[in-house]
Write a protein that binds this DNA or RNA. Structure first.
Lengths: 343, 343
DNA sequence: ACCAGCACTTAAAGCGCTTTAATTTGTCCT
DNA sequence: AGGACAAATTAAAGCGCTTTAAGTGCTGGT
């Protein structure tokens, strides 16, 4: 009971100023003030100045909810991220700048261990996002396709079999291929690959390894060890190699953590890297840059992916594009200290 | 020119259904439908069922912008994060669950290298956040105090000198103290500290080191090396130690990356850890858990901090609390493999 | 029969803004 | 002075929802 509202601002704080307050202050209509504040041509220079001043004086800030409702446009791109993944952080950073350049804002929603993709996306829609940029979605293609009916979906970082969606990703097979080329160029022939399990991405990378090995006529040296996306998997794989009678001259892994597991196991066994064995990962995690690892790896080029994602969204929203587009970028080899010519 | 709007949904997609569409479908007013959908008591059970079914059939989803406007309540907590910091990721995860329990939603806004705190906070306010939960804010106390006039501010993870704000943080001095106690308990006396530079947090940790050393009567062994928050700083500090005539038996650092720098430098010099020297970090980063480091460190207890932050916000918003409150939690020692009794 | 009282339901007034059509003001020409 | 035309301004109608006061039917008591 008691009084009506229960939301109180505090200290001497007043209600937030509205357009009407600004208008009253300069003796104009809310329409004019709205025009000025949005930079729409029309109002005279004098009016413009006075309105801007009044708005600043009052600390006026537009209420997004109201303008969204009135204009039927939120100019909002909904971004689903997994906040635990460092690479997503980088993408978000670039998405922000790319979106700003084209006059859109971002609203972020994260999936976590206790909050699934579905919930995250619902939140984005509740905010009236005009398009959905999904970073590393794991939902099946048809679920994504259904979503696309509510708002254009741009899937980033993952291949989507045959749904009519926009996709922005890097060529994972090519990335592993570049690593193989790099190693072969250094003189390696016995190059093993530690797998990443069963996922679209893992499949592509594995294929990239196979293809590249064949291209170099190293069919007989193709050797794939079981693994997944963890450091532990790398360690297991390395132990298996150490048990064998002879070590390969190079080890490629599905991702950086796995490579670090390999590195750790080799170090414990007293095997020098890159002296005796070269090692490379994938993703260019912050991890791989640590000087104690200094891992050769492949970078996914966050900035370019972010730009393409935003462009795709804008084309859908403002340029009537309706046919889905897939943008496949070339990853970039990052040579650091864990690869060298074989002994 | 052309047709009016430029925002097009695609495929066979229709306009998103409104409350009115649901109402029409069951032959009721929008008022009743709104009541049912919000779980307000009143509507009959029969009505309830029919409305729920109709809403589900149409795929109706409430439009937050409209309900916020109409109800004058967004039930939104604005969270400013630095998306690059893994610890923030953990906090966000727990903030989500804590907020959900009390019927609030979260809107995230990140600061990045190219997007400052101010921008991030403006975004949160534009969404009409009712309270602002700022993770690791760096703005000066009076800036935060001003902000607090617009919406209650809860600063997380940082001590704020004497502004009238809510603060939730862990006792950094106590954390380092726990590490010193742990080491002294193992028999160490020569414990050096690698500093974190000039920041509120670094100051607290340094003080914690000094105080704890004195408490153990080790005033003469207090030794603080210059450093910052990076791995490189740890390496530099360790090299300095290696140049001296005798190594200390233990090294404490401002944070985990710095500790990893120390570890790397010691490893290169052939010094065994924890055999010859014990090392410990601070923050319990994902890094420190990697088996190749297995670093003893201090955990900040993300879950508890998140809960307190949400509670503080709710007290301000729904329970008329106006006096600021500071919640200081005890950090938790995490003993792993880099500390042991001295040789 | 009549009305009190209850359980439901709804009409209507906004929320703070945008947008369109209409109005006012100002300028320049004849 | 009068009118045509452009420039500047604004009235008013929503956007999709919530909320309050006002209904509408019932039931049952008398």
């Amino acid at each position: 009971m008691g009084n009506g509202g229960s939301a109180h601002h505090q200290n001497g704080a007043h209600k937030r100023p509205r357009l009407e307050d600004v208008a009253a202050r300069v003796g104009l209509s809310t329409a004019s003030v709205s025009l000025v504040l949005r930079g729409v041509p029309g109002p005279s220079e004098r009016t413009r100045q006075r309105v801007l001043k009044a708005a600043a004086d009052l600390g006026y800030q537009v209420d997004r909810t109201a303008s969204t409702l009135a204009s039927r446009r939120s100019r909002l791109l909904g971004v689903m991220v997994d906040i635990h993944r460092p690479f997503h952080a980088e993408l978000v950073e670039h998405l922000h700048t790319a979106a700003e350049e084209v006059g859109y804002d971002l609203v972020l929603s994260t999936q976590t261990r206790t909050r699934d993709e579905h919930t995250a996306v619902e939140t984005l829609l509740a905010f009236r996002s005009e398009a959905l940029i999904l970073l590393g979605p794991t939902a099946p293609a048809d679920t994504l396709a259904t979503l696309d009916n509510k708002a254009p979906v741009i899937a980033v970082g993952r291949r989507i079999s045959d749904a009519a969606l926009d996709v922005v990703r890097t060529a994972d097979d090519d990335g592993v291929g570049q690593l193989v080329d790099h190693l072969v160029g250094l003189g390696h022939r016995e190059i093993v690959y530690v797998d990443g399990g069963k996922g679209v991405i893992a499949t592509d990378r594995r294929r990239g390894y196979r293809t590249a090995m064949r291209r170099h006529g190293l069919d007989d040296h193709i050797r794939i060890l079981h693994g997944d996306h963890t450091e532990a998997a790398g360690e297991r794989a390395a132990r298996k190699l150490l048990e064998g009678d002879s070590l390969p001259t190079a080890v490629l892994t599905y991702n950086d953590p796995s490579a670090i597991g390999v590195l750790a196991a080799l170090a414990r066994a007293g095997v020098s890297v890159p002296g005796e064995v070269s090692v490379a990962g994938y993703d260019d995690d912050a991890l791989s840059r640590l000087s104690c690892f200094n891992l050769t790896t492949v970078s996914q080029n966050a900035e370019e992916q972010a730009r393409h994602a935003v462009t795709a969204a804008v084309e859908r929203l403002d340029q009537d594009r309706t046919e889905p587009r897939e943008v496949v970028l070339a990853p970039r080899l990052v040579v650091r200290g864990t690869t060298a010519a074989p002994a």
